[in-house]
Amino acid sequence: MRSTSLPSRRQDLADEWRAALAIARKELRVALRYPLNLANEVLQPLYQFLLPSLLLGATFAVGGHALGLASLVGTDDLAGFLFLGIVVGGMVGAAFWEIAFSFKREIDVGTLEPTWLTPTRPETFVIGRAISGIVIAGTTSLVLLGIGLAIFGASYSAGALAALPAIGLAAFSMLGIGYLIASAVLMLREPNFFVDATSFLFAMASGVAFPIAVLPIFIRPVAYLLPTTYALDLLRYHALGIRPLLEPWLEWLALLCLAILTLVLGRLVFRRTEHRMRIRGTLGQH
C-alpha cells in the first residue's frame, strides 16, 4: 500500500522518476541495437517529405526565390521553413509512435501485463517513453537542421534560441497528447491506421508542411487548438522572422494553457482507460 505522508510521497516520486529513467534507458538501448533504423529516422523525413517538398518549391520559384511563400508568411527561406517544420513533425511522431504505439508493441509481444504488475505506475511508462522519444526526436532534428544549414542553404537566426522554451512547453503538451493517444491504442485492437492517420493530420494541421493560412477555413480552428501550431510559429518567428499567426505573447499564453490542459486531460483519460481495462481484463488482448 502506498503511504500518503509527505516524506513517503517524496520517496514515491523519486522511485517513479528512477523507474521512468530506467524505462527511457531501456528504450534507447533497444533503439541503439538497430543502427539502420536509427539512420532511417534521419533519412526517411529527408526522402519522404523534405526533398519532394523542396523540389515542389523549386517548381514555383521565380529567379531562385520563393515569392509566393514570402508574400504569405514573410520569408522566402523555403529550406528554413521546411526544416524547422520537421522539428515539430518529429515531436508529433515521438508522441504518437514512440509513446502511444509502443503499448501496442508491448501487447503484441505479450509483455504489457507483466510490466503493469510491477509496483511502477502505468503513467510512469508513458513518461519513460516520452523521455526516450524526445532524446531520439531531438537528436534527429539537430542532425536534420544541420543538413538544412550545410546542404540546402537554410539560415536560422540566433534568435531561434529564444523559442526553445516554446519547444519545451510543446513537449509537455505532447506528453499529454501521448497519454490520450495511448488510451486510444489500448482500447483499439488494430490501432495502426488510427495512429498513422491521426499523427499525419496532427502534423499537417500544425503547419509542418505549409502555412496555416492555406488550410480550408473550416479546418483552421482545429489548427488553433494544437500546441504544436504555436510552438512551430514561434520557432519560425524567432528563427526566420516570419509574420506570426497571433501576437507572440498570445501564442506563449496559448502554449502554456494548452500544456496544462493536455497534461491534466491526458493523465485523467489514461488513468480511467487503464482502470477500465484492468476491471474488464482486456489489457493484453489483441
Partner: peptide, 14 residues
C-alpha cells in the same frame, strides 16, 4: 495545400 502555400497568390509563382 503545400503548393498553394508556395503559390501564395503570386501570379509569377503560379
Amino acid at each position: 495545400l503545400q503548393a498553394q502555400g508556395y503559390a501564395g497568390g503570386s501570379a509569377a509563382a503560379t
